[in-house]
Amino acid sequence: MTASRYAVNCSLLFTELPLLDRPAAARTAGFDAVEFWWPFAAAVPGDSEVAAFERAITDAGVALVGLNFFAGDMPAGDRGLVSWPARRTEFRDNIDVTVAIGERLGCRAFNALYGNRIDGASAAEQDAVAVENLALAAAAAARIDGVVLVEPVSGAPRYPLLTAADALAVIDRVRAASGATDIGLLADLYHLAVNGDDVDAVIARHCGDIAHVQIADAPGRNEPGTGTLALARQLDALGAGGYHGWVGLEYKPSGASADSFAWLPREHRGSAHAAATTTGAQR
């Protein structure tokens, strides 16, 4: 796993610290890239909140490489607004805010959580709203050469995208309806494995559709080495298949966050090492 470019997910790691202190903590731990879920309580936060978040990233000297669109009240069980008819305006208002943060900080990967099935709307109605919203998000991302990510998720009983095939079907519908090309699969190897997907087959068949990768071990969703997933082999397969993007460390540390990186030697945590290793391997 040492040739991958790793980014610390600061919405699951370093949660013992205030949110704005986490990018600096990731830098202190040896990483030069981070990703976040939506870091604000509202879809359209105040300018001062956005400025403080952006300053925390730049002052820490890290790159923001992944950012979620507003996904509702995640602690309460929400898992995105993309397919939620009554909140389509809220999601659409959030698109420009999210992409603007990405433009200023150099982030080009934006995760659009699909949303749970809800009472009062049919699956067909929700899916139609999702296609419209994802097409709008992809068009906005395309303006800055970005990509919208669609992710299968585990642990949410009413979330309809469980496998890579589920997410790829949505991506295909968006492409067919709008011509959008700036949309791809977020392959969280933990979610795929827990949901019973054949992760090795997904990598072999769909590596070209994967626009971002995240990892955690299972069971437990803790750091690599605490469970039974073949993460090292699978990341090697991704690299061999042509994926050289970021790998988000989206796990719950089994202890202190800083101690949860023992599986990865410090000299392998920065993206410069991964780039050098990859270049050397290609010579």
Rank of each mutant, 00 (worst) to 15 (best):
A139S: 15
A124K: 07
I203D: 12
G242H: 09
V213A: 11
D59F: 02
S4K: 08
C207Y: 00
A180Y: 09
A52S: 10
T181G: 15
G220Q: 11
I210V: 14
R88Y: 07
G77R: 13
L238P: 06
M1Y: 11
F31Q: 08
A137W: 02
T228M: 13
G248Y: 07
V62L: 08
D73R: 12
P219L: 12
L13P: 05
G115Q: 05
P85R: 01
D78K: 12
D73Q: 13
L81H: 08
K252N: 15
E250R: 13
V131M: 01
Q214A: 10
A24M: 05
P265V: 03
F261Q: 06
I171K: 07
D32Q: 13
V8M: 03
P265K: 04
E103I: 01
P39H: 07
A123S: 10
T228F: 13
P160Y: 00
D127Q: 05
G239K: 00
P160W: 00
V82R: 08
G120E: 09
A141Y: 05
G242Q: 09
G245K: 11
V131R: 02
Y190K: 11
I210R: 08
A281L: 12
A25T: 03
Q214C: 04
I210C: 11
S11H: 15
Q234E: 15
V131T: 04
D96N: 11
L186E: 06
L81W: 04
V202N: 02
M74G: 00
A128K: 07
A123M: 03
V82I: 13
D96L: 08
D119R: 10
A240Y: 02
D32E: 10
A100S: 14
A272Q: 08
P85L: 00
H206F: 13
R27D: 06
G270S: 12
V174S: 01
V150H: 08
F53W: 06
T89W: 02
G270K: 06
A124V: 05
L149S: 06
L134A: 03
L67E: 07
T28Q: 13
L235W: 12
L186Q: 14
L162D: 09
R175V: 00
A176D: 05
L17K: 11
R283K: 12
G227A: 15
S254V: 04
A237I: 05
W84D: 03
V247M: 07
A140K: 14
E35I: 04
V194F: 11
L168T: 05
P45C: 07
A71S: 15
R79T: 01
L162A: 14
T163I: 01
Y6N: 01
D197L: 02
L264Q: 07
D78P: 05
T226D: 06
C107S: 04
A167V: 02
A26V: 05
A142T: 03
G225R: 04
I171R: 05
D32Y: 12
N222S: 15
H191I: 06
D198E: 08
G245V: 09
